[in-house]
Design a protein around this nucleic acid. Structure first.
Length: 592
RNA sequence: GGGGCGUUAGUUAAGUUGGUUAUAACGCCGGCCUGUCACGCCGGAGGCCACGGGUUCGAGUCCCGUACGCCCCGCCA
């Protein structure tokens, strides 16, 4: 037997043809004289009918079929007349089996291979090859394939060359923790698995390749989140002789093509933009989900003018240089005390000390709030005015350092937006966030560190600040944000030796350290480097958002669990003493 | 490193203030059935209640610890 068609393509036009289908037994309905089998392959499901009239031997053999047997069927395509199954694309026809061949039987699977049957994720990961049989999973990876294809076609058409970079690289400090690979030939020396192709793509620009892209794995030994895995894929690109506008234009074009191809949606270009400061002020996040409102309201100035307005925590916060912001929940006054208490617990889990609140009563009075007793009417009225508070609303306050206040309210906003059903189903809202600070203060190092990486260029108008007030320098960096996820980030790099020198000074990286760590790149930049910049897309995250998956694991074929293990293969595993000896490695396990 | 939630037939879940034989659905096995399509009907098998301690006359249920899974903080230039 040789396959003539897939299980997803037969329709009325094939009626009367003899066909051969191969696939898995998806469902079996035995009516005695007739046995119906839904045959499944990658492309779809076709109903096969076994009965004595069309094939007595086949009908007899079909009685032994069980779920997930792998079979081949030869038979004639027949119309189902009025008895169509509207749920199947092939529902207008069926195949009357004349010959059945069983390629392989199958043990009873740990879970039924069907979209509606939800097994625990743990079990799905242990039997990932079975989980991947589910049509819903196959659709995801087909989508992922199409995004790859669109990306290659689009970027090639825009003059980009697909070029590769090494995974085994020299360890470079800063940034994500690297996975280390011991060198057998150089005892005591290690490669690092590349956390990104960053330095190599810049070298391609120095080499004159002009426009590079790559769909590439990156490795980062950091803790996991629902959108973070230790190995993930980037669509990485870099361009010579461009401004950030040109990089953004290419990226927007790519995203628009992907939206059109995958969702059939036209994307309105150019995309909206927010500065980092604006994003933090209005949404409390540098990756805001702008599919819904519920914006934060800053009342710091009003509190300052009123000298705390009789509320001790307000007064303390502004005296210490902190801020006061609130989230107004329209109609939130209907929430019960315990609901609000739960919200306070949520806020605490985000690092808040508490969650002061006020329900708005008639005439703008505040009720059910410790604030209500203390607050001066003048400040209360001003805050109500700034927040647009109406009777029946509830105001949720955070006071303290800006970073904490924005962090807590920003996360609370997302949680509430989801809980209150403010996010329109199936909608997407991409935007740019730009003008990030070039440096940020690291508590750990008690010093300014690069917010992006040390080769990110400052905004030209901020260059003078490098010597006077480096903390205020904004960068030529930009993130593409989609529905609350950072799906791409990039920057225009420094190609001017003088500016690079100043950045290193701010970062406290001396001559010796530079040569040691980045010498090859600095050398390269000194031999005639074009102005250049680029961006890298987190492909897994993008796919996750576009297909509506709950986690990045659903769009990676063989992902790791949160503790970094592969439940199917058992990785990571032990090394043999001989392997360790070869690598000149001795294992010292932690105590206990 | 820290916080939270979970773990009961093959699977997904229920299991009351601690109380006799731990339920259901799907799956599995056997039988019947020629128009089902989440087929239907009849019958059956299937349990170290994650693991280890403890409290108690008595623990799936209460307490402590461990393992595993998930979510979050830190971390992710």
């Amino acid at each position: 037997m040789r396959r003539t068609h897939s299980c997803g393509e037969l329709n009325h036009s094939h009626v009367g043809e003899e066909v051969v289908l191969f696939g898995w037994v998806h469902q079996r309905r035995d009516h005695g004289g007739a046995i119906f089998v839904d045959l499944r392959d990658r492309e779809g499901i076709t109903q096969i009918v076994f009965d004595k009239a069309h094939g007595a031997d086949a009908h007899a053999a079909a009685q032994d079929l069980r779920l997930e047997y792998v079979i081949g069927v030869r038979g004639k395509v027949a119309s189902r007349g009025a008895n169509v199954n509207p749920k199947l694309p092939t529902g207008a026809i069926e195949v009357h089996a004349e010959e059945l061949h069983v390629f392989n039987s199958a043990r009873t699977t740990p879970f039924v291979i069907r979209d509606e049957v939800e097994a625990s994720e743990e079990l799905r990961l242990r039997y990932r090859y079975l989980d991947l049989r589910r049509p819903a999973m196959q659709r995801i990876f087909h989508t992922r394939h199409r995004i790859n294809q669109v990306t290659r076609n689009y970027l090639s058409s825009r003059g980009f060359w697909e070029l590769e970079t090494p995974f085994l690289v020299r360890f470079t400090p800063g940034g994500a923790r690297n996975f280390l690979v011991p060198s057998r030939l150089h005892p005591g020396s290690f490669y690092a698995l590349a956390e990104s192709p960053q330095l190599f793509k810049q070298l391609y620009m120095v080499s004159g390749f002009d426009r590079y892209f790559q769909i590439v794995k990156c490795f980062r030994d950091e803790d996991f989140r629902l959108d973070r895995q230790p190995e993930f894929t980037q669509i990485d690109l870099e361009m010579s002789f461009v401004t950030r506008e040109q990089v953004m234009e290419v990226m927007e074009g790519l995203l628009a093509r992907i939206f059109e191809e995958v969702l059939g949606q036209k994307l309105q270009l150019p995309l909206p933009r927010l500065t980092y400061d604006e994003a933090m002020a209005r949404y409390g996040s540098d990756k805001p989900d702008i599919r819904f409102g519920l914006e934060l309201c800053d009342v710091t100035e009003a509190v300052k003018e009123a000298a705390g307005g009789g509320v001790p925590v307000f007064a303390e916060a502004v005296a210490a240089g902190g801020i006061v912001k609130l989230l107004r929940l329209p109609g939130g006054g209907g929430m019960s005390r315990s609901e609000l208490d739960k919200l306070e617990d949520v806020a605490k889990s985000f690092g808040a000390r508490g969650l002061a609140r006020a329900k708005i009563g008639p005439d703008g009075s505040w009720t059910q709030s410790p604030l209500a007793k203390n607050v001066e009417p003048g400040l209360r009225a001003r805050i109500n005015e700034l927040a647009g508070a109406q009777e029946g609303d509830v105001l949720l306050f955070q006071v303290g350092p800006a970073k904490q206040v924005n962090g807590v309210l920003g996360q609370l906003r997302v949680q509430l937006g989801r809980k209150l059903g403010l996010i329109p189903e199936g909608s997407h809202a991409p935007l740019w966030v730009h003008d990030f600070p070039l440096f940020e203060y690291s508590e750990e190092h008690q010093a300014l560190v690069a917010a992006h990486h040390p080769f990110t260029s400052p905004r030209p108008e901020d260059v003078p600040l490098l010597s006077t007030d480096p903390a205020r320098v904004r960068s030529n960096a930009y993130d593409l944000v989609l529905d609350g996820f950072e799906v791409a980030g990039g920057s225009i790099r420094i190609h001017d030796a003088e500016i690079q020198e100043k950045v290193f000074q701010v970062l406290g990286i001396g001559e010796k350290e530079r040569q040691e760590k980045f010498g090859f790149l600095l050398d390269a930049l000194s031999y005639g480097a074009p102005p250049h910049g680029g961006i890298a897309v987190g492909l897994d995250r993008l796919v996750m958002v576009l297909v509506g998956a709950d986690s990045i694991r659903d769009v990676i074929p063989f992902p790791k669990t949160q503790r970094g293990t592969d439940l199917m293969t058992g990785a990571p595993g032990d090394a043999t003493p001989a392997q360790l000896e070869d690598l000149h490695i001795r294992v010292v396990l932690p105590e206990g």
